[in-house]
Design a protein around this nucleic acid. Sequence first.
DNA 1: AACACGTGGGA
DNA 2: TTCCCAAGTGT
Length: 291
Amino acid sequence: MIDNPYSTAVLAWYERNARDLPWRADGASPWSVLVSEVMLQQTPVVRVLPAWEAWMRRWPTPADLAAEPSGEAVRMWNRLGYPRRALNLHACARTITERHGGEVPDDHAELLALPGIGAYTAAAVASFAYGQRHAVLDTNVRRVLARAVTGVQYPPKAATRGETALAEELLPENAPTAVRWSVAVMELGALVCTARSPACADCPIADRCAWRAAGYPAYDGPPRRGQRYAGTDRQVRGRLLAVLRASPGPVDKPALDAVWDDPVQRERALDALIADGLVDPLDDGRYALPG
DNA sequence: AACACGTGGGA
DNA sequence: TTCCCAAGTGT
């Protein structure tokens, strides 16, 4: 049975080229899949691998993490980036423990209600942890579909209804096949149909690729300006949190003041971290990771 | 609907 | 060096 014009070739390619990632192993728990998906939000696989191993070794179940203060999750997060994801995971663990009997929910809507779990992650966990049929639309899938089907170099900056409709239309009917298709397209985007230099010679669907057929027209949309980092509040927040993570206990204000010259920006960043729940201001004037 | 939100590696 | 990008989410 042919589900879409690409499925046979893509599934066969995945069969031979899938990476051996631990969260794809047969025995991988739903919790371990959820943790991997959150860590992989905007963070490359190679950097997630060791962090995931350490995290799962320390907190094999949601209850294990729920029993700890949130600051331990932030500390364990180390330099993965976007540390509020650590807070989200901790909050997920508490909710799962208190309201879902300690089991990661298998219902898409319940997953979506968890903190830090959006459209992509809910679909990914329902698919990869529970074998359900959902359109999984991440940056890899969006790029592959933009090229192979739509014939353009890059998808729009934000996912559109049209992209979601297309992904659902291409999704195989049979649930296990749909799951396989989803992970296979993601893998194709990650390994072959990459953003900068796609390896079209290795692509199983190059002969049906609309972008290739059109002669690889260059992206012509509005300039996609990257976000600057140096000098931003984000950089200051990063430095502040690095000091807290490196210290086994609370730190004095001067230790934090030392990371950035501009006091206005420094205070603004610290206040924001406190508001976000990533830093705890103690009564004695010192600061700590949240308890 | 833009924008904020970390970090590091490759070209 | 600078810029782009990496399994996004929340506001």
